[in-house]
């Protein structure tokens, strides 16, 4: 038991997280088998949907690291934030796709190179503007609704980014 504890504490934090979630699943397997199976089915369906985005994020990490040297990143995105950078990141956030957590490693990597916390926040917030889903929102609500929502989201994302830049130092 002591050895097992030691082995667990030696693991990196993401592996620890996965083991804890697997233990929750095992617990459910014992007490509610049908819920366990349905959750597992959902995991497989969601996993297949999410996989291309995750692969895409890893490919982007590779491409960004290869094409953009540290100096180039520093020149365009790293360093003191300005309006040009804010709007560039707004655009990148809107154009990005896939689940939010697929982007964490990419952003953590950029952060290591000096990408400001406020810009990360702006990027993550603008990911909520999903261009492919706009027709669905128009169908349920209206075009006016979509335009107003998008404008407000961009404004609030920048306000939040400025607050985060002030309160969370890199």
């Amino acid at each position: 038991m002591k050895k097992l504890k030691q082995k667990f504490s030696d693991l990196n934090i993401s592996l620890k997280f996965l083991i804890i979630v697997i233990l929750i699943y095992l617990f459910i397997l014992i007490f509610d088998f049908s819920f366990f199976i349905s959750s597992l089915n959902r995991f497989i369906i969601l996993g297949i949907k999410v996989l291309p985005s995750i692969l895409g994020a890893f490919i982007l990490i590779f491409i960004f690291n290869y094409i953009l040297s540290d100096q180039k990143i520093k020149k365009y995105l790293v360093g003191k934030s300005n309006w040009k950078k804010y709007f560039l990141v707004v655009g990148l956030g809107i154009l990005s796709s896939g689940p939010i957590y697929a982007w964490y490693p990419f952003l953590a990597d950029l952060k290591e190179q000096g990408f400001k916390n406020g810009l990360i926040s702006i990027f993550l917030y603008n990911r909520a503007i999903k261009i492919p889903f706009i027709p669905i929102i128009v169908y349920y609500f209206s075009l006016k609704f979509v335009i107003l929502l998008t404008i407000l989201m961009i404004i609030f994302s920048i306000i939040n980014g400025i607050i985060i830049n002030k309160l969370v130092k890199n």
Binding site: F17, L18, G47, V50, Y101
Partner: peptide, 10 residues
């Protein structure tokens, strides 16, 4: 990252 992503999807 991969174990983390799998954990979140689970």
């Amino acid at each position: 990252t991969l174990p983390l992503v799998i954990g979140v999807v689970l």
